Amino acid sequence: MPPEPASEPATAPDGAHASAPAVDLALAVDRLRGRLRQESGPAPSPWSRSQLAALRRVVSGPPCTTSGLAAAAYMRPQSMAQIVAALEEGALVTRHQDPADGRRILISATDSGREAVRSAPASREAWLARAVAEGLDDLDRDALPEVVRILERLADWAVPGTARRAPAAPR
């Protein structure tokens, strides 16, 4: 049974009251994330979900640094370095010097890495596609591109006057 929407404002870590819509949004995102995890089942590959997510970012974009990849995934650089090391050990990515700045090390996907992304099980995405097609009406489906745009903006938003934690895409 879905949780009841928040009727009282929640208290934020700084003592301020969070708005009910923000609390409801956080709960809904957590529930959807949990459902996606459940629908994807155990990974039938040697690669963790975190490793596959990082590999997808490398495959879909230009060569990037570990820190840029970590920032785009909202992870600590040390955690991403471990993920990249495992992908490199599995010959899914390579590291090479940036020709424009020899101090930077760039990460690129190998042919094996691109193939791993292509062949990764898509059960989670299949469930979501079916849920969108069969569980939403036309009005809700038409609103999804705007919802995605709003969620991306929220993910990249920073409190005015503070440094944003991560860029929208790896560098």
Rank of each mutant, 00 (worst) to 15 (best):
T110S: 07
L106V: 01
R103S: 06
E89T: 11
L87H: 03
A122E: 07
T110E: 05
A120Y: 08
S119D: 05
R114Q: 07
A81M: 02
G90N: 06
L106I: 00
A85L: 09
A86C: 06
V93H: 05
A116R: 13
V117L: 08
D111L: 06
A86E: 08
G113C: 03
R95E: 09
P99T: 04
D111S: 10
D98E: 03
D101T: 02
L87D: 03
A122C: 03
E88N: 09
Q82K: 11
A73K: 14
A73G: 09
A81R: 15
A85D: 09
M80E: 10
I107T: 10
Y74Q: 03
L106M: 04
S79I: 10
V117H: 05
I107K: 03
A116Y: 04
S123R: 13
G102K: 11
A81P: 11
A72Y: 11
H96G: 05
D111K: 05
H96R: 10
D101F: 04
G90S: 06
H96W: 08
I83D: 03
Q97H: 12
M80D: 03
M75C: 12
Q97G: 10
E89D: 11
T110D: 06
A122F: 06
G113N: 04
A100F: 03
P77Q: 15
R118P: 00
E88T: 05
Y74S: 13
R76N: 15
G90L: 00
Q78A: 13
A91I: 05
D98M: 01
L92Q: 01
R103I: 01
Q78L: 14
